[in-house]
Nucleic acid binder design. Structure first.
Lengths: 180, 180
DNA sequence: GCGTGATATATGCGCTGCGCATACACTATG
DNA sequence: CATAGTGTATGCGCAGCGCATATATCACGC
């Protein structure tokens, strides 16, 4: 067993909590109805376009009913649509509207700005180590596409070249994103 | 301006979100009534013993009324008590009961185990760098005791030797913790 | 000492988001 | 074509929170 200092454990935990607070605060959009994970829902739908309500609920850790209401709010606000799934006529294929895509871009931009500002105080050499550490830990924190998407539910995955979470595959119902 | 890769931004953000999820899941105690930040309240009261409801509310980011109800739940469950503040007879000095201390220990232990397991996959050399990075970032993320406590609201501060957040001082109403 | 504004706490009220139970539609398998 | 399984939707009630307000105490000026 390695020597693992209590101090590192605490600093690392505090860092995660503090950074997450900042991310959520930055990503929060008051024009999107509903608090909690509603903002994350837009990111997830944008990334895994065509996913079902059931899958979205598992990614966000919500009950089925809660997810239906969340989607109701998103649809009512004009940010997402329920379209017909290709394979399964029971299922719904969720996708963003133009307005939803606009919100998504704004969310991701604010998130990226916040994180960039924070990371700007870390030296170039340390950034390389940090990237390796993050990659190592992330790779062992997920089992499947759902848990990977849960962790990445506020990520700008289009700008995550060689994302380690791609190894966990995609959701059943989501269509492949076509790169612009 | 330094070169800051989009990939690092995303991995770092995903890491923070994923770790925070794990921490909150580990810290969550079903025997404590009320979700949300109720668990964190026990940690905060344990650390800043004697703090007022107003201060607790600012640390947790809740309204005054919400904090009063949170404390109501904690008191009803027997985990905390409202005692009389020394200086100000309007204010309440919050402190944990024996049962509350027991819960606190269990919460912190589960948190520490979770984080230790995650960090066990990081090499010793990288841990040194990670500790330095965390220290650097944390030091510039706080302004005062309230924001420092917010970030540390799930920390085991008794095991955080030379904690960088100590630089931001203590809350007005909290009495100094006496080391055992 | 006394009045005035600020501060700390407590409570009535209503809203929102969520989960549970249930109903319905479609699929899959025999 | 019957039966079990899966995906979605909805009635219902609850828990947590914020807003507005009331009460007690403090701080300060006169």
């Amino acid at each position: 067993m390695n020597v693992l200092s209590d101090r590192l454990v605490n600093l690392f935990g505090a860092l995660a909590v503090g950074i997450t607070d900042r991310i959520k605060k930055a990503a929060f959009d008051p024009t999107i109805p509903g608090g909690g994970e509603t903002t994350a829902a837009i990111v997830v739908i944008g990334h895994a376009t065509g996913l079902s309500i059931d899958e979205l609920g598992r990614v966000l850790g919500l009950s089925h009913a809660g997810t239906v209401r969340l989607v109701d709010r998103l649809v009512a606000a004009g940010f997402a649509v329920r379209s017909k799934a290709l394979r399964d006529r029971r299922a719904v294929a969720l996708m963003l509207t133009e307005a939803g895509e606009t919100r998504l871009s704004a969310i991701l931009q604010r998130r990226n700005e916040t994180l960039s500002e924070i990371l700007s105080h870390v030296s170039n050499a340390d950034r390389l180590v940090l990237e390796r550490i993050a990659e190592t830990i992330l790779a062992q924190m997920s089992d499947d596409a759902v848990s990977a998407l849960t962790i990445c539910r506020l990520c700008d995955e289009r700008r995550c070249y060689n994302c380690p979470m791609d190894a966990f595959g995609m959701l059943e119902s989501s269509t492949h994103r076509v790169d612009p």
